[in-house]
């Protein structure tokens, strides 16, 4: 079943050779730390991933795994201080965005890469109408007249299937329901036709029926516009529904990257395996939930060696000493576990 999907993938992961590689967006060995009163929290410790046009990459992780900080760094909206980029590159069309001028980055934001957030109510400005906030981009970035901008904005609201778009143009965010607000934010992020869309937990605050509507909408818009989509989430269900490829993050590292079918069928990292075993499934009865023992590590004090070793059921002495690199495993996947082969080939 998985071979079909495998064949259409190009070789994964930038391994340092031959850049620029022609990829749309690449994060390469990114390192970010937060300098806080209590010490230095190493939030991102060498994250590498990429997304191509028309592809959906899901970045999966629990809170504190660094998935949102990576996205903020890509967008250039990381709070500095306390956050500092200490290494690595974020390349858009092969050009490193971290060394660009503020003006150059600004041009990419919105037109090149756009982002939607979890909580639409706090992401939208409460004192301006939804219409104004969308039209603003057309006026400032495209130099359109007020009336043209309004016309385009109404088209955008229509695109995201907001009923009575014309009438809603002058509504304020608080007059919208949760699902509507999320739609309005999607309209806003797509206004300048970006090549990459980063969606940070876009449906976490929504009810299941509305979640299904929003995920449908995102998938449809992505298909039409051939956008690269980075979906940041903790929900293994949503990921299984929409992703092409998955990167699993833990303690600021990518611990596994694989095609969606491969990952669910044969996870290559004990953490991924643990996650899959610990979620209740709606289509299973009398299921035994096998938990991952312990807690995610404090980023102020990441365990030596493999950061997952204190919680790992397969831990060996080597895990406490050596950080396992993210190594290729077969053609299309990679895992950062010393015993990745054993995990995949377990019975």
């Amino acid at each position: 079943m998985s071979d079909i999907l495998v064949s259409e993938r190009s070789e994964p992961g930038a391994d340092g050779s031959g850049r620029p590689s022609g990829r749309l967006l690449e994060v390469d060995d990114l390192r970010v730390e937060f300098r806080t009163r209590d010490g230095v929290a190493k939030v991102i410790n060498g994250v590498t991933y990429h997304v191509d046009a028309g592809e959906t990459l899901a970045v999966l992780g629990e809170s504190g795994s660094g998935k949102s900080v990576t996205a903020q760094t890509i967008m250039g909206i990381l709070d500095t201080p306390p956050g500092f980029v200490t290494g690595g590159q974020v390349r858009f069309h092969g050009k490193d965005m971290l060394t660009m001028s503020a003006e150059e980055r600004r041009r990419i934001r919105g037109e090149g890469i756009a982002m939607i957030f979890q909580d639409a109510l706090s992401a939208l400005n409460p004192v301006f109408t939804v219409g104004f906030q969308i039209a603003e981009q057309f006026r400032i970035r495209r130099g359109m007249s007020r009336s043209d901008a309004k016309k385009r904005s109404i088209e955008m609201l229509d695109l995201v299937k907001i009923p009575n778009a014309k009438g809603r143009f002058n509504a304020y965010p608080h007059q919208f329901s949760g699902g509507m607000r999320q739609r309005a934010m999607i309209a806003m992020s797509l206004a300048l036709d970006p090549e990459v869309l980063i969606a940070d937990e876009p449906t976490t605050a929504l009810d299941v029926t509305v979640q299904a509507q929003i995920m449908d909408l995102l998938a449809e818009l992505q298909r039409e516009r051939q956008m690269g989509l980075i979906l940041i989430t903790h929900d293994l269900g949503v990921v299984a529904d929409v992703a092409d490829r998955i990167a699993v993050m833990y303690a600021g590292r990518i611990v596994e990257e694989a095609d969606v079918h491969e990952l669910y069928e044969k996870p290559g990292h004990p953490y991924t395996l643990g996650l899959l075993n610990s979620i209740p499934r709606i289509d299973e009865k009398g299921q035994q939930l096998r938990t991952i023992k312990g807690l995610p590590p404090s980023l102020l004090n990441i365990p030596s060696g493999c950061p997952f070793h204190p919680r790992c059921p397969m831990v060996q002495p080597v895990c406490r000493e050596k950080v396992p690199p993210l190594l290729q495993l077969g053609g299309t996947r990679a895992s950062a576990c010393h015993f990745a082969e054993e995990v995949v080939n377990r019975d």
Partner: peptide, 24 residues
């Protein structure tokens, strides 16, 4: 409601028919 719950298994996604509710 049941049809909208995502199942953590990509194999299910082609087989599944979501009943789409409109509106809020």
């Amino acid at each position: 409601l049941l049809s909208a719950v995502p199942v953590p298994d990509p194999k299910v996604r082609e087989q599944k028919a979501i009943i789409r509710l409109t509106g809020d």
